[in-house]
């Protein structure tokens, strides 16, 4: 009997101390905290009429979506007269419809909605517009233009186009240049648009040929796995475009593991890890094409302008535009310092 209890005691103590160690290990706070800075000029910083903005986004289970939430919140804090009502992020269409309805019932002045699924949230967008609440539709577009007052979002086709042009320019003096593409989730429309843009841009360069394409699924793990296979299949090539910087972490790992460096790599989306690597210049990653999460900050600006019945400063129009498509800039070593603060992790 004492034997067992001593063993029990031993295991008990071990389990408790392991537990204590693990609980201490959930923190992700960096040792020295650098305060997030927002130095971009606002269109018109002077406080106007108070505006309450309702914000509904999807669950931030991906670096880019997390950056969307951060951008929206920090932009709203910049204006003393803006109150931001945010909902718990959700990927479930029914849950998100419920959240938007709650915001409508609260009678917010303007709504900013990034739908988990654009088509599925059209109805609730219409409902808000009928209730007299203007809707700013962020990125994933509603099925009907009647469901929003203004759409602001990225340009997936343009992203591919700019990546293709950048690579084409880099390789234009090279005969029979080979290009490889590591795409994102293949059953998303945005992946098809990015690949189409990329292929169209490469058509302008007769010496450049797309020799292989594989689709990963936006995760580090899949990026590593698919890139390792691509490297095995193509013993030599000149450039690689990777659609997403998150999976790019895995792709860079696979490249390191294969010990390859004969090509240049261009990323996509604009993660901080990618921008750091571009700045350091010690990997094959030489540039990344943005899909800017700052669009959420712009959406807050537009919502504020709508709530105060103002136009966009710098344009002659009395009203804000119905559609704003953002430019996918290529960030390379030349302009990295300008974009580094927008990088997300």
């Amino acid at each position: 009997m004492p034997e067992t209890s001593r063993r029990g005691l031993l295991f008990g103590t071990a389990a408790v101390s392991a537990g204590a160690f693990l609980t201490a290990c959930t923190s992700n706070e960096p040792k020295e905290k650098t305060p997030a800075q927002d130095n971009r000029p606002a269109a018109d910083d002077t406080a106007g009429k108070p505006v309450t903005i309702g914000f509904a986004g999807p669950q931030a289970d991906h670096g880019w979506l997390n950056a969307i939430n951060v951008q929206a919140k920090s932009r709203a804090e910049k204006y003393s007269e803006v109150t931001l009502e945010t909902t718990e992020g959700s990927n479930d269409t029914a849950a998100q419809i419920g959240q938007v309805k709650t915001l409508i019932n609260k009678k917010v002045d303007v709504l900013v909605v990034l739908p988990a699924d654009g088509k599925a949230l059209t109805q609730v967008g219409l409902e808000a517009m009928r209730a007299g609440i203007p809707v700013v539709n962020l990125d994933r577009v509603f099925a009907s233009p009647q469901a929003y007052r203004c759409w602001v979002g990225g340009d997936n086709y343009g992203m591919g186009l700019n990546a293709g042009h950048y690579i084409g320019e880099q390789l234009k003096d090279k005969a029979n240049a080979k290009v490889v593409e590591l795409a994102g989730i293949d059953n998303l429309e945005l992946t098809k648009q990015r690949s189409q843009g990329f292929a169209d841009a490469l058509k302008n360069y007769s010496n450049v040929k797309l020799v292989a394409r594989q689709a990963a699924d936006f995760t580090v793990e899949s990026g590593q796995a698919k890139m390792a296979q691509l490297l095995q299949a193509q013993k030599q090539f000149d450039a690689l475009w990777n659609h997403d910087d998150d999976q790019g972490v895995g792709a860079l790992r696979a490249i390191e593991q294969a010990g390859r460096d004969e090509f240049i790599m261009v990323g996509g989306a604009g993660a901080k890890s990618a921008m750091d690597a571009i700045k350091a210049g010690n990997t094959v990653l030489k540039a990344t094409v943005l899909y800017p999460p700052t669009m959420a900050a712009s959406a807050i600006d537009l919502a504020r302008a709508l709530g105060q019945s103002k136009g966009v400063a710098g344009l002659a129009e009395m009203e804000i535009p119905t559609s704003v498509t953002l430019y996918s800039a290529v960030v390379s070593k030349d302009n990295i310092d300008q974009y580094l603060p927008t990088g997300f992790s």
């Binding site: 991906h62 895995g250 790992r253």
Partner: peptide, 12 residues
């Protein structure tokens, strides 16, 4: 070790 990172989408 393989991916050099940890991500909540791992093991999908």
């Amino acid at each position: 070790i393989l991916s050099g990172s940890g991500q909540n989408t791992n093991g999908n």
